[in-house]
Structure formats: structure tokens, C-alpha cells
Amino acid sequence: MQQITLGEAVNQALREEMRRDERIFIAGEGVGVSIHSGPGATSGLLEEFGPRRVKDTPVSEAGIAGLAVGASVMGLLPVVEIMFNPFFTIAADQIVNHAAKLRYLSGGKSKFPLVVRIKTGAGMGAGCQHSHNLEAWLAHSPGLKVVMPATPADAKGLLKSAIRDENPVIFIEDIILHWVPGPVPEEDYTIPIGVADIKKPGTDVTVVTWSKALGTAFKAAGQLEQEGISVEIVDLRSLVPLDEATVLESVRKTGRLVVLHEATRTGGFGGEIAALAAEKAFDALKAPVLRVTAPDIPVPYSKPLEDFYMPNEADLIEAIKRLF
């Protein structure tokens, strides 16, 4: 099986889908000719598909998102890019008030089959206006689907599903994961949106996580395994719709739950998972539900500060041990 990075997997999904369906176009800042050196998620697409289908745009996030809303209601399948998650706030009116709500406002008559790809994540020393995981904001906007893959194989299959979905889908890619390789099937395949994946089975505690934090969960699970604690890792992959069944089944099996995410704590999506367990699996819990998250601060620049910001395996191990 090919070993490619998440960025390359996104590229492959875009390329294959664009070959399959002429209605798909991509647009964004530097999706054709980029200021970022090295291969990116959209590298080579301009050369293959030309400037009609690969639109480099002005630095206009509201314009980019509005382009997707308007083009999608006319039957096109836009895949637009917001370069970094904090810049989403400029596009938020178009995404939250329009992409998410216009179908409802039409009484179900119109549809907006668009994808907004957003790069995210701390760890690149870029500071808080480039690194800020805002997935909980998006998950709080009914009408959107929110996908956040952790592996290259999931990224390829989920992006294909996102492009083929008739709803607006927000597809959030961690920028560090863009450079991490993993096995990816070469054939055409999809992974359904709204289905979590048990990345590692276990019996003593459930860790629910997504995106880059999956790696942290694996490191912690490896160490705890040595100490006789068996960790089950549930990778949500999609926040909306949420695969409640897989989470609850795992919690009922292990009786313990820790939620791990890179985003800040207050109002983070981890609270939603904790509430889910409290509402629907309280009887199965042997210990309190814990959250391991970033502190409620902007992402700092300096390396030791940024490392402090990101929850690591020691934080997760410490939390899990408190449950026994």
C-alpha cells in the first residue's frame, strides 16, 4: 500500500474527484500558485485542471466562502480553502449565516453542496492568529457537517464523502498532519461522514479524540499498556454528525472516559462528549469523566510555551491514572 502524508491524501482525493466530476472546482488563496514552498494539498492541480477549475483568489475570505455558497446553489460542487482556521472568522458570516442556514430558510428547496477545507493546529510556531482550533464553533452551527480526520487514509476517504455530500461540509486538516505519512489505499473509496473509528481496542478506559491528538493518545496508550491499563481509542473523525453509538458502546464497555483534544477547554467539543456520557451512559461510569485539553489561552509562540499549550501524553496518562 502507498505511504503518503495527509496533505498528499487530500491532494489525491481532490485530483480523483475532479477527474470524475466536471462540476467540482477549487478556489482559495494560493490553491494554484502558492507562497508556501514544498508540496501542498493542492499542488499540481492547476497544471492538470487549468485556471478555470483551480481558482487562485484575492485575499478575501468572505468572498471565497460566498463564492462557494452561490456556486453550489447553482449546481456546482465547490471545494474552497480557508488557509488557516483563525481566518475562518472573516468568512464566518458566509459559512454560519448562509451556507448553514439557507437550505433551512428555503424550506428544504435549495441545497448547498460545498466543502470548505480549513487548515488548523498548533505546533508550527506560528502563534495564535494562525493556530486556533475552532471546530467547536462550527459544530455549534446547525446545517454544517464538521469533519476532522487524523490519518491520511481517513482524510482521503472522508474528503471524497464530503465532496459527494449534498450538504455544506467543513473539512478541517491539521497542518502538522499534512507532513505525516501513513498507509493509504490506492483505489477509489469513501469513508462515511458521521462514523467514528476505534483506532485501538481496549478494555479499561475509553479515550475519545480526533485530529492530531490521536497520536498523543497512542503514545499514552502504549505506555499505560506496560503498566497493565488497556486503553480503547475512539477517533471521532466527524464531529457533526456525531457517532453517539460508537462512543456510548465503548464507554459502556470500559466504564471510564477521558476526552482529549487540542482545542481550548471552555466550550470545547470535549464538553459535548462528556455530556453525552453523563446523559446516556451514567450508569456504566465507574469514575468521573475527565477532559484533557489546551488551557484557556491563545496559542503562544515560543517553543516551550507552545509545547505547554498542547496537551501531551503525560497529561493524558496522569488523567487516566486518576480514574483507577
Partner: peptide, 13 residues
């Protein structure tokens, strides 16, 4: 911006 998008679709198609 949405009107710009519906107009883009006319040109694209």
C-alpha cells in the same frame, strides 16, 4: 458575495 458566486456558476457552466 453569494451573487458573485451564482454569477461565477453562469460563467463556469
Amino acid at each position: 458575495p453569494i451573487a458573485m458566486g451564482t454569477a461565477f456558476a453562469a460563467q463556469y457552466m
